Amino acid sequence: MSPIAVEIVVPAFNEAERLPAGLELLCRRLERLPARAAVLVVDNASSDATAEIVRQWPGGPVEVRLIHCAKRGKGAAVRAGILSSRAGIVGFCDADMATDPAVLDTVLQMMRVHPVIIGSRTHLGSRVEARHSRTRSGGALLFRRIAGRLVPGVGDTQCGFKFFHGDLARQAARRQRSNGFAFDVELLARCVRMGAAPVEVPVTWNDVPGSKFSVLRHGLPVIAELARIWFLLRRTPAVRAVPSASAAEIALIRPAA
């Protein structure tokens, strides 16, 4: 069989309700790719049936693997998944598939040229259905302004749909120290410091009920996390060498004839 060309990390903390529908949607999309793909579901110390759902997932053309991450936090789970990957192209998305995975075709084609492609809800071409409160919308605006200082030129660091050349993602994840909701900012900032500027693409995004983020509970800790990321980046020397996608990787993501 041909090697796996694309691996997608799905962090999951108590996602027994939303995971089955999300996995089915993602696997159906991955089956249509011209290259082999796998899904790495990272069980982030769930107390529900999340892990059992993955263990019993029926076999098919898309391999679904279970990875355990005892350290709490979405950032810790994504980092564990990326570091468990081996493919030339590595990405991650949320278990609820709030971002329509149909954009995968566009993302993978663009990865022939760009090492970091991220979904963006602020892109002019995006279609966004959001049901957030004014408090959460205001908090998101403040977050974007602060994050923009750490990752200049990126309008949406938090859309849960990001893809990288595999070696680059693994190098950035090894240096990543943030485990909470702001981990995306650090991961992208480390890619930028290696010379790989993220390119944003429009997405179709639907607000799916069940988000675990609360402005009241997590607002101040997230701001503190951004400050810590800023401090960490200042103490870390920039690494300018960026691994390029190999000819084999590019061949694997060419469109089917």
Rank of each mutant, 00 (worst) to 15 (best):
I223C: 11
G125I: 11
R228D: 03
A35W: 05
P11S: 11
I253E: 00
E15P: 00
R235H: 06
S137L: 10
R193E: 07
R127V: 15
R235M: 08
D96C: 09
S85P: 06
A76M: 01
F183V: 03
S2L: 12
L216Y: 13
Q171R: 15
R254F: 05
D96R: 07
A147I: 00
R144Y: 08
Q56F: 10
S244R: 12
R190T: 12
R121D: 04
P61C: 11
D100F: 04
R177L: 09
R121A: 15
I118R: 00
L30G: 04
G81S: 13
V151Y: 02
A245V: 08
K74V: 15
E129K: 14
A35D: 01
D100N: 10
R79G: 09
R174D: 04
G73L: 08
V9P: 02
L216K: 14
M97G: 01
L220K: 06
F231I: 06
V6P: 02
R79Y: 09
V201Q: 00
V185R: 01
S2W: 11
L150Y: 01
G210H: 03
A227R: 10
S47T: 15
P202C: 12
L66R: 12
A169N: 03
A5C: 10
A45V: 00
N44L: 08
L188R: 03
I82S: 14
E15M: 07
D207A: 12
T204R: 15
G81T: 09
S2Y: 14
